[in-house]
């Protein structure tokens, strides 16, 4: 099991995983009706997307067999599941932050987002975190307002004139 996992970290393994996923995707595409619908100049609607997928498959397969197949990419060498989870979490938090921001306003939610983000990234002083979060928010808001872009004012927009 361990050997398989180690092998999967090589370019060979990565190429194999890519190829399998892409072939499944290609089969799915071929089964969807719009792909085969012919347009005015004789090409099918799915012709060019399929070309893209086929190219992806070709190069993934080559990865399994070429001269560098035994190498482990630098990033993969140190990669763990925690990394992946961390990345997803940061992106999800950012998406959530954006959704909330449109509702209750940039000036309110941004310091909160920045505060927690800075804290977990290693600045372990709440006071410094809060200070920098507020300063950065104000600067960003100021810059955008100066050049005429209105950031979501949210609930503050009803009390503040700007």
């Amino acid at each position: 099991m361990k050997r398989v996992r180690k092998w999967l970290r090589r370019n060979q393994g990565i190429g194999l995983i890519f190829s399998i996923c892409l072939i499944v995707f290609l089969v799915y595409l071929e089964l969807t009706p719009w792909v085969h619908r012919e347009v005015r100049d004789g090409f099918t609607l799915g012709f060019f997307p399929v070309v893209g997928v086929v190219l992806l498959i070709i190069f993934s397969v080559i990865m399994v067999f070429d001269a560098r197949r035994r190498e482990v990419p630098e990033g993969v060498e140190v990669f763990t599941f925690k990394y992946f989870l961390g990345g997803i979490l940061i992106l999800a938090a950012t998406g959530f932050y954006f959704t909330i921001m449109r509702k209750i306003g940039f000036l309110i939610i941004t310091p909160v987002y920045l505060l927690f983000f800075i804290y977990i990234l290693g600045l372990k002083s709440w006071r410094k975190c809060a200070l920098s979060a507020v300063i950065m928010t104000v600067i960003v808001y100021g810059v955008f307002t100066c050049i005429g872009v209105r950031l979501p004012p949210g609930i503050l927009g009803r009390i503040l004139p700007f």
């Binding site: 005015r40 609607l45 997307p49 893209g52 190219l55 993934s60 080559i62 990865m63 070429d66």
Partner: peptide, 26 residues
């Protein structure tokens, strides 16, 4: 090969949208 893989991904992503001749979404 990884460069070409990346280029192919670019080609694929670029086909998302509208067919340039019939203007039908694909």
């Amino acid at each position: 090969v990884k460069g070409l893989l990346s280029a192919s991904l670019g080609i694929f992503l670029a086909t998302i949208g509208t067919d340039p001749v019939s203007a039908v979404p694909r």
